Simulated scan of single mutants.
Amino acid sequence: MHMNSAPHLLAEDRPEFERTLDEALRTAHERPDLAALGQRLNSEQLRTMALSASAIIAAHASAEYDHYVKARQDLRSPAVPSPGALLVPGVGEHAETTGAGAVAVVAVLTPVLAGIAAVVLLLVGYLLSMLDPAPAVAGAVLTAGWVFGALTVAGLLGAVVGLLFTALRNRSTAFQVGHRDASNEEVDRAREAWTRALLERGILPFLRDELTRPPETAPAVPEQPRQNRIPGLGYSRPDFGSPSEHSGNGHRTRPSYSSPDFSSPDYGGPDHKPE
């Protein structure tokens, strides 16, 4: 079912309108004010009528809908970047990611490599010192081993600092995630307030009005006179009367008959002479 477009109802919110309408029709039997459902109008007819009047129905919850749309836009809008990021978009994020990766690699490899070098140099230096006479490089090897030992300690301290920095950064990210979750809850509350207002002030009053509206009476159609079912074929029955039966004014007359004269011409009397 396609819903008519409303000037203040976005396309992404039309399914929510239809869902609220379907829920109202599904639970209509639980509402005494909608008990007339099915007597004159069924659910499908009411649904079609409500979808056709969606703009009028949604206007009764326009304040809640505007708040819901604003909260959703605030959630979707990105954070305002810093001025440096505005000058070179993406460079700050890339540099930050690259720097964090390099620091992690150095923090991990420095104490490991320095520790290995310190152990090897100190072991070699002490072995050389045990020789008699001790070579001159033994002292230099021992000194280098102690230097790498110091680098190992410094690398461990740097790793601890890196862990603290990572923990602080994760805490900031967790705060942002928590803020976003709070925004999601606000959007959910705004949507629930809109659908509740849409149901109570828009859909249910519309359904009640349509169910209590008296049916429209059709205008009386005048009764047509009954006609012969046999249609006229365009010709009339021929007149089988003789021409003498019609008078000059078109009326039929019956023929007149007189008895014939049966007297003979020879017996007309003594004064009558035949011709």
Rank of each mutant, 00 (worst) to 15 (best):
V105E: 06
P243Y: 14
H251D: 13
F17C: 12
P219W: 09
S236R: 08
P135N: 12
T143M: 07
G90T: 06
A138K: 09
W194E: 02
R26Y: 01
P89T: 07
T217V: 09
R229K: 15
A71Q: 08
R171G: 09
R208H: 15
L10R: 11
S54W: 09
P238I: 10
A35W: 14
A59Q: 06
F17P: 10
S43A: 03
I57E: 09
L113A: 14
S244A: 04
V124M: 00
V221D: 09
A174M: 01
S183N: 04
N4R: 15
L41A: 01
A79K: 14
H246G: 11
G149M: 00
N184M: 07
D271E: 14
A50E: 11
S236L: 06
P231R: 13
R254E: 11
G162N: 10
K70L: 04
A100M: 02
R237P: 02
R237E: 04
N184S: 05
D66Y: 07
A159G: 11
V69E: 13
E200F: 14
Q224C: 00
V80P: 15
G202A: 11
R72Q: 13
L121C: 00
Q39V: 02
L157V: 14
L168I: 08
A117K: 02
L86S: 12
E192M: 10
Y65L: 06
G125M: 04
P135G: 07
G149H: 00
L75W: 03
Y235V: 02
F240K: 10
G268Y: 03
L204N: 12
A197G: 10
P238T: 13
V119E: 00
A190R: 08
A220E: 10
A218P: 12
Q45H: 07
R208S: 11
P222K: 02
T253C: 14
E200G: 14
V108E: 07
A154C: 05
S242Q: 13
G145N: 01
V153N: 08
G232A: 06
E210A: 05
A182R: 09
F165N: 15
R180V: 00
S263G: 12
D74C: 07
L46W: 00
